[in-house]
Design a protein around this nucleic acid. Sequence first.
DNA 1: ACTATCATGTTAGAAATCTAACATTTTTTT
DNA 2: AAAAAAATGTTAGATTTCTAACATGATAGT
Lengths: 145, 145
Amino acid sequence: MNEKRIIGFEIKSISNMIRRKLDDTFCAPEFGGLTGMQNAMMGYIMRQAEHRDVFQRDIEKEFGVRRSTVTVMLQNLEQKGYICRIPVSYDARLKKIILTEKAEKLQQRIRAEIDLFHEKLEENLTEDEKEQLLYLLDKIRQSLK
Amino acid sequence: MNEKRIIGFEIKSISNMIRRKLDDTFCAPEFGGLTGMQNAMMGYIMRQAEHRDVFQRDIEKEFGVRRSTVTVMLQNLEQKGYICRIPVSYDARLKKIILTEKAEKLQQRIRAEIDLFHEKLEENLTEDEKEQLLYLLDKIRQSLK
DNA sequence: ACTATCATGTTAGAAATCTAACATTTTTTT
DNA sequence: AAAAAAATGTTAGATTTCTAACATGATAGT
């Protein structure tokens, strides 16, 4: 008799594997010794900052994590000299997040690598299958509402 | 132009949501105030222990996490009085993991709730879709080897 | 204008996770 | 039998994540 497979566990296990692989790939010194998550977050900030101000609340939504999580991660990146937090005049609650030059340079170098990682992750899937997978994951997401 | 969706991020985000929901559901005092993960692990130990000895290495494989992770989680559960680690005679490296009576009783009460949680998670999917989703997730898993 | 509510961010303390280095025991190789 | 390799578990230090409690600023309702 086969064990019943539980989708919730499968997702968690794969998510774990992805994090490990990302860290393996990007923790090398030539990538600044940062974790996959730190690089992902800086990549997001760089892309968005090209056409608008980025605040902590945007990162929360993009990465699906809580406020306090973003606070801690940004504190860490700030300490390492990769980002700055700049108050804006029109709302005293907000702090605009910008990358330092050091971070910009790093991102330009590793952007292609990050894209490659995600392409590799999806390389066994046809276009139809990718669409189907996203569709099914959305259904799971619905159940979590 | 729509943003390209990246499967790696989607999986991570959903995995996060699942953990939060599990914790919401099971952190209540009537469920022992444990986290979703702690309950999941005890559930696994209980099911397996019915027909064989369970060791730390088995938990590693089942949950797709590293040794040190399991060590820490078991230390935590041991401190709270939910498990014991018992050396076995035939291999001095191994320690058999067993649930205490306290844990057995708790698990008997909440087993049904855990099953319900995972059923709910999958309730928007037909049988075919579940199979398809597992198949596609396996393909992602392959890419991570 | 006051008050209540909402939005944004921080802090503290915990859990779940990792890697790297270590220790011990068992197995394999030579 | 001795040395090398593999398996199992621990510890230390870090990251990513959470909730709960807090603080402050903006908005809405009365």
